[in-house]
Structure formats: C-alpha cells, structure tokens
Amino acid sequence: MSELTLYQLVALILLMAGLFGISQRRSLVGMLISVELMLNGAGLSIVAASQLTPANAMMGQLGTLFVMGLAAAEATLVLAIIVVVARRFGTTKTSVVSTLKG
C-alpha cells in the first residue's frame, strides 16, 4: 500500500467519524464538532494528494490554508447562531428546535 493511500485512509477515518457524529448527535455544539472533524479530513486529504504526487504542492497547501480560514469563519457564524437559538428556545437540542416562523 502506498503512502498516499495510507494518508487517504486516515482522512477517510476522519470523514466517517464526522459523518457519524453529525447524524447521531442531538445538540448543535456536538454537530459543530463533527463538522470540524470532516473539514480536517478534507484538508489532510488535499495536502497528502498534493505533497506526494507530482501535482503543484504549493496549490495544495494554500488550498488547505483556505479550508482552515473557511472553517474559522464557519465556526464563528455557527457560534452566533447557537447563541441565538439558545436564547430563543432555551436549549440547543435539535429535537426541540423544530419550529419555523413564516
């Protein structure tokens, strides 16, 4: 098994853990943690694919840097949304937060 395959399998483990968490967790914070796991798996996969193949290595590293920036922006927004939901519903359980106003 080549090194690239090993790194891709580790990234796949991260994706699977995140996917399991996001479909099984029942609070918004737990789902946020799972999303961070999946984004990390994507970053690891991109870096491994660019560093270990003849592809443009700089592009891969910068792409992962942009993924990190997007993850930070996403975490900021989700934090604000969680605070608003907690203020309005008193909880962040996804089973309780189920009403829309339209």
Partner: peptide
C-alpha cells in the same frame, strides 16, 4: 481559535 470558539459555545449555552 476554533476550539476556544466551541468552548464559548458550550459555556454560553
């Protein structure tokens, strides 16, 4: 940064 943000989310809720 991100982990501190998530800790804030845990504490604020």
């Amino acid at each position: 940064a991100v982990c501190v943000l998530i800790f804030f989310a845990i504490m604020l809720t």
